[in-house]
Amino acid sequence: MAEIHREFVGLPSPLVGRAGAGGHPCQGVYHRPAGERPRTAFIATHYNVDFSEHYLAEYLAERGYGFLGWNTRFRGNEAYFLLDHALVEIGVGVRWLREQAGAERVVLLGNSGGGSLMAAYQSQAVEPNVTPVPGMRPLEQAYGLPPGDLFVALAAHAGRPQVLTAWMDPSVTDETDPLSVDPGLDPFDPRHGPPYDADFQHRYRTAQRARNERITDWALAELEALRGGRARDRLFAVPRTWADLRMIDPAIEPSDRRPNWCYQGEPAKANYGVFGIAGSCTLRTWLSMWSLRTSQCTAAPHLARITVPSLVVHATADTCVYGSDARTLYDALAAPDKSLEFVKADHYLQDPPTARPRAADLVAGWLADRT
């Protein structure tokens, strides 16, 4: 096994100052083969998950590549996420790879939720299109971002508003009461399933979209009500977001996944727990990240601006990313050179134990063919 050199990278953000305790807003860890300066390097960033020690970093470094697991200031801070700000801070990492690490080619790795985020980065770099949420100024730093040279989507969702809406429990009747329920839409009422018939699935999906739209209507109205007052934004909670019917019923979009399971365990328990995506939001974060109507975190429009060689890798035993997600990403890519590959593994490629090295071989092999 090759010796791996790890370097902590802490850099200023063009948008906010350094923390009083000393931390830089932009931070990550650069992995590379010891004694080498790779000509090709990856960068991986997520909306809020810490990617500094990403699970593929060492594997790809062993195969001769650099890997910057990179965090914006929104790591662990999802409630305050703003897309245009995050893209500027991803650009800090890309510039460091080119100007300091010596990378001649940069591969944008969009893993999990990071798929749509890194797609948005490349999209903004090649054809600026991301606009600020209501009440915020455009960022001049969001123009002239350095683009990547290749793009990889790994176990990636189709977009932040899409994944939230697909996971939402539409039986919530009162957003301020996490126990409120419409019995006619309750996915955990055995009278409905599983298995769930086509009529229930249709009503359920329609009601999920309606719930997302209701929250957007409310958020826009709240922002308008705050205009001119002391407060510019406010926090609110979004309960019950582990209720995709596919999590419960394996007959819907069959795959190698574990039935009746999600990233937080059994859906019926997770759905009524306190850990969930979009659990805490500001009004502007909802509009920036989660709203079907206003969010620019949907992958497809950004993928339509990506023309560099691109690879989509789907983990077939993923409990919450499905084959349709991978096909949506692949079909939306504008790249003439694009590939869709599959690995039999869970979302984080932990099971089976060979999944991570196999995925690294797959990505490295694809990349080697494009030197």
Rank of each mutant, 00 (worst) to 15 (best):
D186I: 02
A158T: 10
V181A: 13
D186V: 01
R160K: 09
A142K: 00
V172K: 06
V133T: 15
Y143L: 11
F200C: 04
Y204L: 05
G184T: 14
R137E: 15
E127I: 00
Q124V: 03
T206I: 05
E175V: 05
T206V: 10
P170F: 02
R137K: 14
Q124P: 03
V130L: 05
L154E: 13
F151Q: 08
A142V: 01
D186Q: 06
V126P: 05
Q201K: 10
L179D: 14
P195Y: 04
P146G: 09
P138E: 07
Y196L: 05
P146N: 13
V126S: 14
Y196K: 07
R203H: 15
G135K: 12
G144Y: 07
P147I: 00
D197V: 00
D169M: 03
R203N: 13
A207P: 08
T131F: 07
P183Q: 14
S116Y: 08
P195N: 12
A158S: 14
D174I: 01
G113C: 07
P147T: 01
Q124D: 08
G193W: 01
L185V: 00
P170I: 01
V133C: 06
Q122T: 00
G144K: 08
R203D: 12
G135R: 13
A198S: 12
T173S: 11
E140V: 06
M168A: 15
Y204S: 06
V126L: 07
N129F: 05
T165M: 04
P195K: 07
N129W: 10
E140W: 11
Q201W: 06
V181D: 05
N129M: 07
T131R: 15
A166T: 03
A198R: 15
T131E: 14
D197C: 04
F200G: 07
A198I: 05
V172Q: 12
L154G: 08
A207E: 12
V130H: 09
D197Q: 11
P161R: 03
P161Q: 10
A142E: 01
A198F: 09
L179K: 12
Q208I: 00
Y143R: 15
Y143H: 14
S180K: 04
D182Q: 13
D174F: 02
V126K: 12
A155K: 00
H192G: 10
Y143W: 05
R203Q: 14
F200Q: 07
T165G: 09
